[in-house]
Every structure is written in structure tokens, then in C-alpha cells.
């Protein structure tokens, strides 16, 4: 039995009106404990809907979502409990901060779980430490923090519930290279200290390839690819046709391959590409 499983899920917005939009079309996949999965797809590919499906914010029109073998939409209570087990960080989460102090805001989730005041406090401090927010900031108003700190506080608000599955929708959007790196490190820290499953939703193949072990590619509401990073990148030309943003080195490799050079078009890191291209050049020199 899989830990988290989606079975033949379909979902449409504005159902039964002329504006009906099919967001998910017969999606099936399963996720095991501790996996790090990258979910990619362009805007409108159904990524956001899929994420909300996994924590019962969206109920499938047909098909089902199972957590530990149980349907998460069985009843209202199960749906709500699922939200504490499957934590979802929305895009630009800092725009949802509302409390007087940072610590109170982080405590919102754990308090809703019905934990004791003591446990809530413990989890808040723990989450703040994972995201690297210094104690001095916890009593400040969240609206007085810098942009990057706000983002971290908001993510801590979900991490404080210690979900077994953590889903992050484009957590580094709008951040500069350092900010992006910090976020990725936070996610790693959360994974290693809880053993949680992580789903990282992103437009950027580069970010996903560097972090995840497995990639789900969404296209037009359906799962177009599902496999480890290597196998997904071996179909780089298809990814480009889907309009996805593959790393520049991959695009270069695909172009060189199309020109007839014996290169591996599935490379995605600069180091790997450099090694591969050097080998290709050496081999050519050898024949001369």
C-alpha cells in the first residue's frame, strides 16, 4: 500500500457553466514516505489544483485520494485532519500573515490542531529554528520583517504543524539567488529532521533537478512523465516542446545533438555538461 495515492482524479472549475475548465484529467500516481519529488508544469497545467487535491482543499469530481489507504475526503473530519498531515505552502505565503506577532502567526496551525499551549510553543520554536528565524524576531509584528524574513515566517507556520507530507508551491518565487538557496536549505533541514515527504512545485527544471529525486511532469491536466531525474531529462526535447523551462545546458546539449554531434542531450548540471562536452572534444581530437 502506498503512503499517499491519487487514483484517476478528475477535476473541473466552474462545472456545468460555459466557462468550464478541465484542470485535472485522470491523474494517478503514488508517493512513498521520505521521497523528495519535484512537480513541474507551465502555468495552467493543473499543478496548483493537484496540490490542493492532496490536502483535501479540492475534492475530485471523480477518482480518489488515499492517505495510508484511507480516502481523505471520506468525511469532513478526515479532510480537516488530512490538512495537518499534508502541509501546503501556497505561492507568496507572506501575503497570508495576519497575527500581531510572528510567534502567534506560526502558532496558528498547531493551535488549530488542538495541541496544548506548551506543545504549541515547542513546535513554534522548533519551526523558527528550522527556517532560521532568530528568537529576537518572534515577538515582532510580522509586517515589520523584511521580505525574505516574512517568507520564512510564513513557511514556518506550515512546518510548525510537522506535516508528514510538505508541499511547497514555488517557494522561491521572486527571490534573488541567495534567497533561493536559503529556502532550498530550509526544506532539506525539514526533511532530514522529520523524514517527511516533500513535493516541490516549480516552473524551473533547474531548481527541481538539483533538489528532487523524482520528477512529475504535468501537461494539460494530465501526468505526462513520472520518473527519476535522469529518465525525465533523457526526454529533454519533449520537455522543450511542452514549453517547459529546461536548464540552458540542456538546451545547448539538445541543439548540439540535433546538429549531429555525439552528445548526451539529457544533461542538466553545468559540471556534468562540462565533463561530457570535454570528453566529446577529446574523442574528436583523438580521431584527428
Amino acid at each position: 500500500m502506498a503512503f499517499l495515492e491519487v487514483r484517476n482524479a478528475c477535476y473541473s472549475y466552474s462545472k456545468g457553466t460555459p466557462f468550464e475548465i478541465k484542470a485535472l484529467d485522470n491523474c494517478s500516481f503514488s508517493v512513498e514516505k521520505g521521497e523528495y519529488i519535484g512537480v513541474i508544469g507551465h502555468t495552467g497545467s493543473g499543478k496548483s489544483t493537484l496540490m490542493q487535491l492532496l490536502n483535501a482543499l479540492v475534492t475530485p469530481d471523480s477518482g480518489s485520494v488515499l492517505l495510508d489507504g484511507k480516502d481523505i475526503n471520506a468525511d469532513k473530519k478526515t479532510a480537516r485532519d488530512t490538512r495537518f498531515r499534508v502541509g501546503l505552502v501556497f505561492q507568496y505565503p507572506e501575503y497570508q500573515l495576519f497575527e500581531e506577532t510572528v510567534s502567534k502567526d506560526i502558532a496558528f496551525g498547531p493551535t488549530n490542531m488542538g495541541l496544548s499551549a506548551e506543545d504549541v510553543h515547542k513546535q513554534v520554536l522548533w519551526a523558527a529554528q528550522i527556517v532560521g528565524l532568530p528568537d529576537a524576531l518572534l515577538d515582532k509584528s510580522p509586517f515589520d520583517l523584511s521580505g525574505g524574513e516574512k517568507r520564512r515566517a510564513a513557511i514556518a507556520g506550515v512546518m510548525a504543524m510537522k506535516p508528514e507530507v510538505l508541499i511547497l508551491d514555488e517557494p522561491a518565487a521572486g527571490l534573488d539567488p541567495i534567497g533561493r538557496k536559503v529556502i532550498m536549505e530550509m526544506i532539506d533541514k525539514y526533511r532530514t529532521s522529520t523524514g517527511a515527504t516533500v513535493l516541490l512545485v516549480s516552473h524551473s527544471m533547474e531548481t527541481v533537478a538539483a533538489a528532487a529525486d523524482r520528477i512529475l511532469v504535468l501537461n494539460k491536466g494530465a501526468i505526462a512523465m513520472d520518473g527519476d531525474v535522469q529518465s525525465v531529462f533523457s526526454r529533454a526535447d519533449e520537455l522543450i516542446t511542452m514549453g517547459l523551462d529546461v536548464p540552458a545546458v540542456t538546451r545547448i546539449a539538445v541543439k548540439l545533438k540535433n546538429m549531429g554531434y555525439p552528445v548526451d542531450a539529457g544533461v542538466y548540471s553545468v559540471e556534468e555538461a562540462a565533463k561530457m562536452l570535454t570528453a566529446v572534444l577529446r574523442a574528436k581530437e583523438g580521431t584527428r
Partner: peptide
């Protein structure tokens, strides 16, 4: 649209 997103996000943190 914004209300929709905020509502979903707070529900994801267990808001009832």
C-alpha cells in the same frame, strides 16, 4: 481571487 487564495491557505493551516 485574492480572498479565494487566502481562504484556501488559512484552511490549509486548519482554519475552520
Amino acid at each position: 481571487e485574492e480572498i479565494d487564495i487566502i481562504m484556501s491557505a488559512q484552511k490549509a493551516r486548519g482554519a475552520d
